[in-house]
């Protein structure tokens, strides 16, 4: 078919739109659903600024077609704040200078939460490996690691 009508649940809400099959998931999220917290950084599947959770697992939404996500569930950065209050990782990124320009930040936070969820006792090396798919040009990762470690500490 030359046209598609994917139905995707994002942050608990159903969205559907008539799109070309070539539409990337990141464009469905940003343009069809109007959620612009997910960013497009590199267009070459390197930077991870477009990271969202697909059925709970982090993926680069610029490297997924909307049609691949048809019938699946997505969580974006907007889905982290419940009733207007930030989730612990978002708070930590602010308190520990985990961001400067903020462009990589939504993807970084989505991935950071997943790394700690999968391995609550991750070492610094394991956290860094988990963030292999997320590039930051501003911070040198120092504040990012600090923020993640502080969330890890608080959870203990």
């Amino acid at each position: 078919m030359k046209e598609a009508k994917p139905k995707i649940k994002i942050n608990g809400k159903d969205y559907s739109a008539t799109v070309e099959p070539r539409q990337l998931l990141v464009h469905f999220i940003r343009d069809s659903a109007g959620l612009t917290g997910t960013h497009i950084g590199c267009d070459t599947s390197n930077c991870g600024a477009c990271t969202v959770l697909l059925d709970g697992k982090p993926v680069k939404s610029c490297t997924v077609l909307s049609v691949q996500a048809d019938g699946h569930e997505i969580t974006t950065i907007e889905g982290l704040s419940k009733d207007g209050s930030m989730d612990p990782m978002q708070k930590a990124f602010i308190e520990d200078n985990g961001l400067q320009c903020g462009f990589c930040t939504p993807g970084m936070i989505m991935e950071a939460n997943y790394v700690l969820k999968k391995n609550p006792h991750a070492t610094e090396a394991e956290i860094r490996k988990g963030l292999d798919g997320n590039l930051c040009r501003c911070t040198g990762y120092v504040g990012i690691l600090k923020a993640i470690r502080s969330v890890q500490e608080k959870k203990k």
Partner: peptide
């Protein structure tokens, strides 16, 4: 292989 996100897909 690659990174977490690529391995998930």
């Amino acid at each position: 292989i690659a990174d977490t996100q690529v391995r998930d897909m």
